[in-house]
Amino acid sequence: MRNFEYQKADSVNAAVTAHAGQASSFVAGGTTLLDLVKIDIMQPERVVDVNGLPLYDVEALDDGRLKIGAMVSNTDLAYHPTVVEKYAVLSEALLSGASTSLRNKATTGGNVMQRVRCPYFRDGVSACNKREPGSGCAAIGGHNRSVHAVLGTSEQCIATHPSDMCVAMAAIGAKVLVTGPNGEREIDFLDFHLLPGDSPEKEHALDVDELITHVVLDAPIEGSRSTYLKLRDRASYQFALASSGVIVATEGNTIRDARIALGGVGTKPWRAREAEQALIGEPATEQSFKKAAEIAFKGATPYEHNAFKIPLGQQAIVRSLTHATAARA
């Protein structure tokens, strides 16, 4: 690990002030940053510690939304009674991620800021446009089975966004509250993560020195049920090969409202809006689910080793919709 300047912030504004440009990093749980610093992939010159900032609350707002402090740990959020009761998809997604000890450290704000798991990003030498813009993308034509996308890819980058939590948030709908040198602003969750396009080094909508303070979840859809299904090789402690977070509201057997978000297959937490539209007004049957699943992967681009993610992602959608609409005993 290379040396860096360390500063502990005692307020949000102090944190923002201490964070001095591109060479600075905020550190919360450290589960991404410290890993990458240790293997010399990130080399911050200054690290601003935001642990201890008063961002640990989960607050139900009057308009039915849920305001989550950026420092709320993945564990605490997963077991928060309101999340368990009203946002099952989020609780399940959180608990499917990483391990208990990592979830205890990882924070809501930090999880949003997770970096990719692409081996070519992490090896420090292969061509990688995220790590070294303009150097190319070794994942294309290389090993791209597990942590590479089929949706939202570009010729410059095909790495998946690894978060499970973010997939659930994309399904629910949310705002990311940030504070920067110019004050506070909110960013729609679906606009927060950027497609790689021609500039994969730009991963999110934060401006320099901006700090995530909260994520505010949309109010739950009236009468909806939700679930998260993560498919992978081993049963735990692996990033998704494909995952599906769904929220469905039915009237009788007809789908009144639906949300579908996908993980493990997209370069960002992936919201499948067209597939949702195709479901609304349709009967809650396997046939409808399959049709929606097909639409969700329309235009998907398979690479050398990950073509199976298209049918796998479709299976995740069909099974999670089946669960979310199954008659309850």
Partner: peptide
């Protein structure tokens, strides 16, 4: 990696 000959999954994750 068949091109570079470098390891691609040499970690516990």
């Amino acid at each position: 990696d068949e091109r570079s000959g470098l390891p691609v999954n040499n970690n516990y994750a």
